[in-house]
């Protein structure tokens, strides 16, 4: 298979531009208020917490925001980038308005979430977890840990609301609603 066709197939959809970029003043304010290290050790310890806090508020953590974090804590920028790129939870690009998080923990998988995930990938036209559908409407995430609601597996959370005992029909219904 030639290089170009492979590139076409695996090329991720371009991430939608954020409606508003992260307000760096807000980040600076957050750092001033909550992340004041008493020594260099604590400064290093706080970096990850600050990134998580920014992501929780804005949905992602841009490299500019990471620079503010590094600057405030007085640690090297590459250390912050190293965290930003290692952890599965941290994102550098924003998500779409709709976020579909499928649980693919062991229990859900045994109950059939694997097929549902493959079905969703086809339906949304994406090939990798964390991608946004080409029309920019839905971001699909897979949670390979456990969401902790194994009694209703296979389950998924869509925009924060949980759906349990999913079947292919239910999934289609949910996605049709999102893509409308």
């Amino acid at each position: 298979m030639s290089q170009s066709t492979e590139a076409q197939r695996v090329a991720p959809a371009p991430p939608p531009q954020p409606a508003q970029p992260i307000d760096l003043g807000w980040v600076q304010h957050l750092m001033d208020e909550e992340f004041n290290a008493r020594d260099w050790r604590e400064a290093n310890e706080l970096a990850l917490l600050a990134l998580m806090e920014i992501q929780e508020h804005w949905g992602y953590c841009s490299e500019d925001a990471a620079a503010v974090v590094a600057d405030h804590l007085g640690i090297e920028l590459q250390r912050v980038y190293a965290l930003l790129t290692f952890y599965g939870d941290l994102r550098t690009t924003p998500r779409a308005d709709n976020v579909y998080i499928a649980c693919d923990g062991a229990a859900c998988n045994v109950l059939g979430s694997g097929q549902l995930v493959e079905r969703l990938f086809d339906r949304l036209g994406i090939i990798r977890k964390g991608q946004t559908s080409p029309d920019g409407k839905v971001t699909m995430e897979i949670f390979s840990g456990c969401m902790g609601a194994c009694q209703i597996g296979p389950m998924a959370t869509v925009n924060g609301k949980a759906y349990g005992n999913l079947t292919p029909e239910k999934v289609d219904q949910i996605v049709n609603e999102l893509l409308k």
Partner: peptide
């Protein structure tokens, strides 16, 4: 061998 694998769709030639 276009293996559309679960979780990560990747093309394996």
């Amino acid at each position: 061998l276009v293996v559309l694998t679960r979780g990560t769709h990747r093309v394996i030639d």
